[in-house]
Design a binder for these strands. Structure first.
Lengths: 123, 123
DNA sequence: AATTATACATCGCAATCTCATGTATGTCAA
DNA sequence: TTGACATACATGAGATTGCGATGTATAATT
């Protein structure tokens, strides 16, 4: 399965990697961060979160260590590896390509609501 | 399952509905049109195309009629129903919300390649 | 005669998500 | 002190979806 098709079925990995690129974090906090940054539009449930983190670790994109808390349950802290950084960069390009393509298909008729044009401009 | 989560797992329905909003068409041509409009970035395989069209028809979003060709195999022509138009409009909003949310999560660190800013501007 | 393109359709496999459930700790209010 | 809620990890069942392969059939091309 190619990268673009994989993105269609599961934006979870790229979202997790992206959050981790802001600094190491533990699973539960990653999920909350995705929800916060997306203004509640995206929710990564626990049944998707933990299996995905395991796959990312199996594939060498993240590493984890247990951290015992002075209070509350222990946390497994995930850190992005070098391979994870590279994967994130590639996934970003795939997402851009995919979302542009969808917009291209959606933008070819008179029912696109705003009728607006999207300009991408360098900072 | 809510609409946003459904989009994550399958942009195929909205792509088909969008192509059909440009006029009635048959399955095989719809798939080619999606591929053409997306500059080969998106491909809807036959194993996804025909089952999805059946579901759309079952749900009353499209209607179909057989059309015998003077040459070549018969075609099943699909037409967007009123419910299909409404669904398309709703799906567009969901796609906008979903892609904006992903961009929001991706846009929060220094690894976003372009470093660019996306401005959406009305026509 | 063989290949390619059109055009529909179905099946099995694999991947993924959601929902539910389970374990365990700590806090806060009734 | 008991119940509710939040934190934090983990797994399993069931459903959905996509993809590749396969099959049927027609027609044009080489």
């Amino acid at each position: 399965m190619n990268e673009d098709q994989e993105l269609k079925k599961g934006s979870t990995p790229i979202l997790i990697l992206s959050v981790l690129s802001n600094g190491s974090n533990h699973g539960y906090a990653i999920a909350r961060e995705i929800q916060r940054l997306s203004a509640d539009a995206l929710k990564v449930g626990e049944g998707a979160l933990y299996p995905t983190l395991r796959i990312l670790e199996r594939d060498g994109l993240v590493e984890s260590t247990w951290e015992i808390q002075p209070s509350g349950p222990s946390r497994r802290i995930y850190t992005l590896t070098e391979a994870g950084h590279a994967k994130l960069a590639a996934s970003r390009r795939s997402w851009q390509r995919f979302s542009s393509a969808v917009n291209a298909v959606l933008g070819t008729n008179s029912e696109n609501g705003s009728g607006g044009v999207i300009h991408v401009q360098s900072a």
